[in-house]
Design a protein around this nucleic acid. Sequence first.
DNA 1: GGCCTCCATGTAACCGGTTGCATAAGGATT
DNA 2: AATCCTTATGCAACCGGTTACATGGAGGCC
Lengths: 360, 360
Amino acid sequence: MTGLPKRLPTISQVAQAAGVSRATVSRTFSRPDLLKPETIKRVHEVAEKIGYVPNQVARALSTGRAGNIALVVPDIANPFFPPLIRAAQARADHAGYAVFLGDSDEQPEREDMLLTKMAAQVEGFILASPRLDEERVRAHAARRPLVLINRDIEGLPRILMDVSVGIAAAIEHLASLNHRHIAYVSGPPASWANQQRQQAAVRTAEKLGIHLTTVPAYHPNHEAGRKAAGELAQLPVTATIAFDDLVAQGIMAGLADLGWRIPQEMSIVGFDDVLAATTYPPLTTVAAHSADAGTQAVKLLTEVLSRGQIRDECIIIPTELIVRATTDQPTKRPRTASAEPRSETRTESSQQKPKRTGRR
Amino acid sequence: MTGLPKRLPTISQVAQAAGVSRATVSRTFSRPDLLKPETIKRVHEVAEKIGYVPNQVARALSTGRAGNIALVVPDIANPFFPPLIRAAQARADHAGYAVFLGDSDEQPEREDMLLTKMAAQVEGFILASPRLDEERVRAHAARRPLVLINRDIEGLPRILMDVSVGIAAAIEHLASLNHRHIAYVSGPPASWANQQRQQAAVRTAEKLGIHLTTVPAYHPNHEAGRKAAGELAQLPVTATIAFDDLVAQGIMAGLADLGWRIPQEMSIVGFDDVLAATTYPPLTTVAAHSADAGTQAVKLLTEVLSRGQIRDECIIIPTELIVRATTDQPTKRPRTASAEPRSETRTESSQQKPKRTGRR
DNA sequence: GGCCTCCATGTAACCGGTTGCATAAGGATT
DNA sequence: AATCCTTATGCAACCGGTTACATGGAGGCC
């Protein structure tokens, strides 16, 4: 048990020890071009010895530039975000900014609170998949430059993902494999991302003359997918597109519990490509390139910060189908008469299979 | 394209508009007990109208208390950390602190840099699984209170996981299922966590008279596990304990590629319980309760901050075996003569199975 | 009524940097 | 030698809060 660390060394201490003014020490670290090389050297030596590092807080107060940007996400634990966060950090670092990360826990009020508290400590905001209503987002954008990811609010710079390309590719891929009736397992109905994906799916299916049934999953996680599997098993579909990879993985587990083989008895397509290569079998999915979104957001924000102008820019990140091992031609189910109408029969048969009972 | 947001409203503007001094406005937000209720009300109204929020940066400069704590992790994308981060945030929030998150990308130098840059903006540090050498860690601890997670440096407050209990339980569990020869697939040899786990495994195996073989995986990820699976398949082991869940999942995928059935032909135990319920079959694992570690770390740090004393405290978080569906009694492999010596034969036979060829 | 206390608020210094302006020294120009 | 320019550095105000201390008015007490 010891006392707390004393205060950090200050510019005054360095100035005194080096026999120069505070201004000179300050310039050593911010505008060395104004000083004699030997002065710089001396100050650096003294600073090193004392353990002085410029105080970012004081610097922020006097310059108004904190050297930080805020990145707010709804849930760090959702695997969609970590790659985005890493990429954002890397890019921010590159531009001399540190990233202040906030997790809103999916709650709009927490999002609001975080933005308010952070406002003075950061130069700008990046809001990923914000849950806040448009009016509040605009209010925050009026205080600090703000870039949106996965949310389309006119007049604000934003990074969007063009889901339609990827979804269309996925459905075309399934169609070419001879699937004629597929399901879309949705995410949170209120989510902007879900609306985009669902609409794109409906539109493409219509165009290709494919029968599409929507099954709700509400929460975008494994468990919801697992539950949805039960419902899927009763539908006459041979392929499923899930809201995201987590849901897809849950569906795979749920169907496996019912004894279904993938992709033979059900083709599965995920979305986001965040788990993709780690599932078994490796998941066919629509890659959303979330890391790119993080990079682009920071790039856009730092441009706004340095140019002093807000650009009503909208950067679209293309999505892309990645075919792995969960999609294949539909096969007639060996255990039910192939042409037999549907659900009841199929459900029964799948329930006859021995069910795994690992505890959860 | 519009101009940047103007400066944030300041205390002076509020003071002027409310007809009081700056001190009074300040007290409205920090020591309201000193003021008349009606004054508070008036100031609040004015502040609300102007959109004033106390500037954390200025406050930090004058009080020396930033209201932030730093949490540095080696890799956000490793699923071990997000739950820890969330829990830490929640607890910090509770205590009135915001969390400044840094990702060191597993690089000691980045870790060093982050801590240096953040020093003035935070009141204390939490270092999760730090890669920095002990001397540097001590140097940072001398500047700001610091709590370690998963690293045992004497004299510093730290949160450790008692891996031995969980590992012992895992091996006893396997022993009781009649496994006599098991493998430990290690993580990074230099990692403190890996050393702990490996030692515990060796010790327990010895005590129970179980034959333990170590297989290196170097990187703690899915791919490394997948590679290790090839090696495992050639060993006469019937069960495997992996460095973490990611590696375990990779092993499962790798073995599945070779046509092995789990748990019938190989029992698998993971570590950390970060994926556990989402794999298929659900993974038996040693839960490390990483979220608890986050909570405890923040709790310890805030205590240190408010008591003004550093406690050389070491909080041990117990680990616990969670049995799911990847462990069972070893069965004789149906495709090889059960008593037959080993590897070559077994390897051949597994390669006869049709191999899945999803592209990666 | 005079004095003391207490309460609510104002005054001004301070936190640790940055930066516009002033100044001094040295060199070049004429 | 006087003037001017350039370069290197110091001086002091400022960023937006906090807080020790000062002040003034109201109420209590003898």
